[in-house]
Design a protein around this nucleic acid. Structure first.
Lengths: 213, 213
DNA sequence: TAGTTTCTGAACACACTGTCCATAACAAGA
DNA sequence: TCTTGTTATGGACAGTGTGTTCAGAAACTA
């Protein structure tokens, strides 16, 4: 069942080359030549495994569990390093106005665990593909949470998808700020700041039901 | 004082080619060959005026008044179409807790005036350069407003630059949502939604002074 | 060991970039 | 109108990167 060891080694070498090069020069400036030099594999070998530079990126991302519901789940059937817990929650927990979204702290902790990788992927030198993949994933999670909240609230004053977009955008901004700050503050403090910024707006956009027992 | 007419025509043709091609295929996929074909100028002519594809983009942006405080003001000494009024305001107006930021509506109106261009530049097919240029500009404006507010408030519970980053990110998200929605709703409504999302968070992050006459 | 799969290196056609230069087209003043 | 300086032109050029192909070497599986 285990794949050929050569295959595993080649793919791993290329993925590691990608990450280390991203940390050094940024995704855009990496060439296939750079990758195969760093990974020490033949040119044809690269194209035997990946169609593209971006194909390699997709693969690396899915292995890291940073892309989750994004596109088809091709890549990691076993999900090696495990995605953040927030994405697995069932909507069984009752929504709480005090804390209208719950994804943020687990997500921050997960990112913190992978500091080096996160820095390489999400730094300004990183590519759109990463950010937008992560945004898509977060939008799914947040939309779910907001729908649960809206289900027990008065009709939203702002379209739900717009609220979700705003929340996700703010989260990405907070995340970028944290990374740029070298993870200097504890995740809990960053999470609190995020909620301070975002929660009152959510409460205003999705107001409590008018009269309820 | 007027430049050589040939120069003006060449530059205008290239800029128009850039914008129309961006609307069609997205900035990244445009090649210099595409540009000179569309503009019908010689290859060497292009490099006589611009060092680069991105150089042309910078020039086009400054002509459009979309980049404002960004970098040096090289390009439009006369500022043809006029930047949004928000960037010109003196900090003479007293900050108002009810409406902690004022930049949004003028900015939305300005974007709406240039619908076609805005769509080409800010659509997902657009480039990072545009978005990040606009973000930088907005961050300056927002920071100024928040500082004015903080000057008459209790110490902020969240670092001011983080608040600014969050506000700008939300605004960009709202703007993207509006554009994707084909400007279907009036700017005033979009502005109201933006403020609903953002204002309560700002008030929470920058609380009123404890005891004041 | 034999048989299969994967890796390799080199060569190839192709696309895009930026530079260069001799010549042609143009603008503006005498 | 003629002259002078500036700008545009097309084509050729070297340089870099991409993605493909192929025959032989190497590594793996059983």
């Amino acid at each position: 069942m285990a794949e050929d060891r050569r295959v595993r080694r080649t793919r791993a070498a290329l993925q590691e080359a990608l990450l280390s090069l991203m940390a050094e020069k940024g995704y855009d400036k990496i060439t296939v030549q750079d990758l195969i030099d760093r990974a020490d594999v033949g040119r044809s070998t690269f194209y035997l495994h990946f169609t593209d530079k971006s194909d390699l990126l997709q693969d690396a991302l899915s292995q890291l569990g940073l892309m989750l519901g994004t596109q088809d789940g091709s890549g990691s059937p076993t999900a090696r390093p495990g995605p953040p817990a927030a994405s697995r929650h069932s909507p069984t927990t009752r929504p709480d106005r005090r804390r209208p979204v719950r994804f943020s702290l687990p997500m921050l902790l997960h990112v913190q665990e992978q500091q080096a990788t996160a820095r390489a992927l999400l730094a300004p030198s990183g590519t759109d593909a990463v950010r937008s993949g992560m945004e898509r994933m977060l939008t799914g999670v947040v939309t779910e949470e907001l729908q649960a909240l809206a289900a027990v609230s008065a009709p939203p004053r702002v379209p739900l998808d717009l609220v979700a977009a705003g929340v996700v955008a703010t989260f990405m901004a907070v995340l970028g700020w944290w990374i740029a700050d070298d993870f200097a503050r504890p995740a809990q403090e960053v999470d609190a700041a995020f909620l301070t910024l975002v929660a009152p707006g959510i409460r205003a956009a999705i107001p409590p039901p008018p009269v309820q027992d």
